[in-house]
C-alpha cells in the first residue's frame, strides 16, 4: 500500500485540498443561510459569524493551495513529453484525446477562478462580520460568490477525477 511521490501529491491536490473545499461549502452556505434576524439570537450571530470568518478564510486558503499544488506540482508531471505521461497517453488514443483537449484544457484554466471568487466571499464575511445579519445584500453577495466558487470547483474537480481515471500521473 505504498504511494509514489506523484500519487501522494495527486492525492494532496485532489482529495486533501480539493475535496476539503467542496465539503466545507456545505457549512459555509448553511452559515450564510442561517444569518437571518428571524432565525438567530444576538449571541448566535456572534458565535456564527466567528465560525464563518474562520471557515470562509480557510476555504479561500484551501482553494489557493489546490490550484498552486495542481498547477506547479502535479500538472508538470501530467504534461511531460514522455510517451508514458498522462497527457501523451490520452492524446495517443482518439477515444481519449478529448479528456485532454477539452477536459484538462478547461480544468487547468477555469480552476484558477475558484480562489479568486472564494477570496472575495471570505472578504465579505471578514469585513461585515456581525453586520451580515442585518445586511441582506451583503449576505446574498457572499452566498452568490461562495456558490459560484463551489460550482466551478465541482466541475474542475469532477474533470480531474475522470482524467485521472483514464490516465494518472
Amino acid at each position: 500500500m505504498d504511494l509514489s511521490n506523484r500519487e501522494f501529491w495527486a492525492l494532496v491536490h485532489g482529495m486533501a485540498f480539493g475535496a476539503l473545499f467542496l465539503l466545507a461549502f456545505a457549512g459555509g452556505i448553511a452559515g450564510f443561510w442561517s444569518l437571518r434576524p428571524e432565525l438567530i439570537t444576538p449571541s448566535g450571530v456572534v458565535e456564527r459569524t466567528r465560525r464563518m470568518v474562520t471557515g470562509t478564510m480557510t476555504m479561500a486558503a484551501v482553494a489557493w493551495a489546490t490550484v498552486i499544488t495542481g498547477s506547479w506540482i502535479v500538472y508538470p508531471w501530467y504534461r511531460e513529453k514522455a510517451p508514458t505521461s498522462a497527457k501523451s497517453q490520452l492524446l495517443a488514443d482518439p477515444n481519449t484525446a478529448n479528456w485532454h483537449d477539452f477536459g484538462m484544457e478547461w480544468k487547468e484554466h477555469a480552476a484558477w477562478l475558484v480562489p479568486l471568487i472564494a477570496t472575495a466571499a471570505a472578504f465579505v464575511v471578514f469585513y461585515y462580520r456581525e453586520e451580515l445579519v442585518n445586511n441582506k445584500t451583503a449576505r446574498k453577495l457572499g452566498m452568490a460568490l461562495l456558490t459560484g466558487a463551489f460550482a466551478v470547483a465541482t466541475i474542475v474537480g469532477l474533470l480531474g477525477a475522470l482524467i485521472t481515471k483514464n490516465a494518472s500521473v
Partner: peptide
C-alpha cells in the same frame, strides 16, 4: 425585522466600541 446592532456589538468582544453610536454605524 433587524437585530439591534448595539446588542450584537455588546455581545461581541471583537467589536471596537468607543461609543454606542459609532459601533452601530453601518460600514
Amino acid at each position: 425585522m433587524a437585530i439591534d446592532q448595539a446588542t450584537i456589538d455588546a455581545k461581541s468582544s471583537t467589536a471596537a466600541s468607543v461609543d454606542g453610536a459609532s459601533a452601530s454605524a453601518k460600514k
